[in-house]
Design a binder for these strands. Structure first.
Lengths: 334, 334
DNA sequence: CTGTTAGCGCTTTCAG
DNA sequence: CTGAAAGCGCTAACAG
């Protein structure tokens, strides 16, 4: 009951023209007699003809699809990025082909290979893969842009500008009268964690050069924030602001502070990083990432190079936006 | 500098065999002399040969990809579903091809057509498309499963079991000693909103047949919950439990109640629907949707039919899970 | 076990 | 303006 769907040949036969003419007519080439085109279009419609994208791709050596290799769609993070990519991809007339790559580098390579002939370019989100391991995995001749990779090597790359984010936070804190900031770091080895930690030191040097750079360990999780505060309190440290490496730790810090009887935004201000939904709800001052925009930019750059533009194969940063809420009240004015 | 990547023919030449043998060797067909296979594998490796998936698909009439047509990746909702699909899809050796369809039915149809020859099957998330409009849009001969569609028509479908969710909530409330429940409904016209409203009446009939069915209008947003409570308070209604059609409205209701001086979980219990992250944080009793599981099931069913199994082309429901937290304290025991 | 030969469905010279 | 024919890269009979 399901006679295979009509091919271009069926249409040609029905319209009594050659397949070449059908192709030309349907693709809007100008060298087609109006009447011929009309006949073809009519035949196509009555036969319910839909071009076979696969065949078209093979013949044109162009799939109009871009592949995305990512660790796991887990959490707000990746889905936001993918959302931005999906958007841009649709706007440019491309498709998105997803493939999640499990931590293992070998599987990652395989995931990429399996896309050859299916996509025109690749976007790789490989927090764990380094540039060289990537070069081996990347199919030769396939343009790629690396998102959130430690080192894009000779490829185009997209990253969050952690330094700018931390700098904005520290500047804001110092500007609101805070003097003794301490940073709750992300897990060592994590790209963003590492960058934010380093950036904190740099920001302190710039905005409060006379103050010491205090950093306590964390893990990006809520408990991490609580434990960090506990440690701080235990050693009786003096501090009036906490710059957590992400929102979850900031929340943990906030609750730990309050349950310990510390006047949370009053005596010690708290900032996060990411601007997760909960942050808005709890009034956490933080930094918004514009993940969707980053995804969109990745696609835009890739498509541009696919369509002939020369890409600088450089690392492009997307700047986070400071979002001031209630956990960092101003102290400079009475 | 980028000599086109090696084809099967290059490998054949290099290994001094026919392309057929290369194909057989590389695809693990048994009818190949071990030594030949070894030579082929070696040649493939030295040439850096990666099979061209597109060509393979065309020849085999099988893409091993499934297309997903969805409104927009916005919010926790869709990304969770897509995540589940991505998982299952990877496990089954398939790829996911995304394509977001803007509300317009014509564009939706186009999105689906554009996938012909690119995918073996389709998963359509079309809250707004009805079954008939879908039948016209669906490429003929392409198996599809509809997720969250009002009426799957003659297709396979997946949906959240709203009735089961509401029933569990009402049973729990009545079981904890509540008598006067009121439902804050979702926007009229929304599938889930409508179903939950109807289910509320049904659940009341079953668990508290002697009580009236009270329903106030809402819109799935936080303000909707606040306004609903305001209206309730204004008319001096007597109620000891609110069953909101989703978590956001439950939150709105909760805060409205509290700012109005009502003892929130004490005098009136509140429940939501969805189990968004915020719900856990605020201790909201609600119902968890298992969205990822739904996505995975959709893929599983589709792949099964693609691989020959007979699908019942029926609507399959995924049951939500009651999550009791602190907004519904027990009142039956002192 | 291996090679030859048709295609898969479409685009694209190259001649009319 | 139109048609015939040669592929795109790979698989799958069909003969050896």
């Amino acid at each position: 009951m399901k006679g295979r769907s009509a091919t271009i040949r069926d249409v040609a036969r029905h319209a009594a023209v050659s397949v070449a003419s059908v192709s030309r007519a349907l693709n809007g080439l100008n060298s087609v007699h109006p009447e011929t085109r009309a006949r073809v279009v009519a035949s196509a419609k009555t036969l319910g003809y839909v071009p076979h994208a696969g065949a078209r791709s093979l013949s044109m050596a162009r799939t109009h699809a871009i592949g995305v290799v990512l660790p796991d769609l887990h959490g707000e993070f990746f889905s936001e990025i993918v959302r931005g990519m999906d958007r841009e991809t649709g706007a440019r007339g491309y498709h998105l082909l997803l493939s999640n790559m499990h931590a293992d580098a070998e599987l990652a390579a395989q995931a990429m290979r399996s896309m050859r002939g299916r996509v025109d370019g690749l976007i790789v989100m490989a927090p764990q893969l380094d540039a060289t391991g990537l070069d081996e995995a990347l199919p030769p001749g396939v343009p790629a842009v690396l998102v959130n990779a430690r080192d894009p090597g000779g490829h185009a790359g997209m990253r969050i500008d952690n330094a700018a984010g931390i700098d904005a936070l520290v500047a804001h804190l110092v500007g609101s009268g805070r003097r003794d900031l301490v940073h709750i770091a992300g897990p060592a080895g994590n790209i963003d964690g590492d960058e934010r930690r380093a950036s904190f030191a740099a920001a302190m040097a710039r905005h409060a050069p006379d103050r010491p750079v205090r950093i306590v360990a964390g893990n990006f999780r809520e408990e991490g924030g609580q434990q960090a505060v506990a440690a701080l309190l235990r050693e009786d440290a003096a501090f009036d602001a906490i710059v957590a490496a992400n929102d979850m730790m900031a929340l943990g810090a906030l609750t730990a502070l309050r349950t310990a009887g510390v006047d949370a935004p009053g005596a010690v201000a708290v900032t996060g990083f990411d601007d997760i939904p909960l942050a808005r709800y709890l009034g956490l001052t933080t930094v918004r990432l514009h993940l969707a925009e980053m995804g969109a930019r990745a696609v835009a750059r890739l498509v541009d190079t696919l369509e002939g533009a020369e890409d600088a194969r450089t690392l492009e940063l997307v700047t986070p936006e400071l979002v001031v809420r209630t956990t960092t009240p101003d102290r400079t004015s009475p």
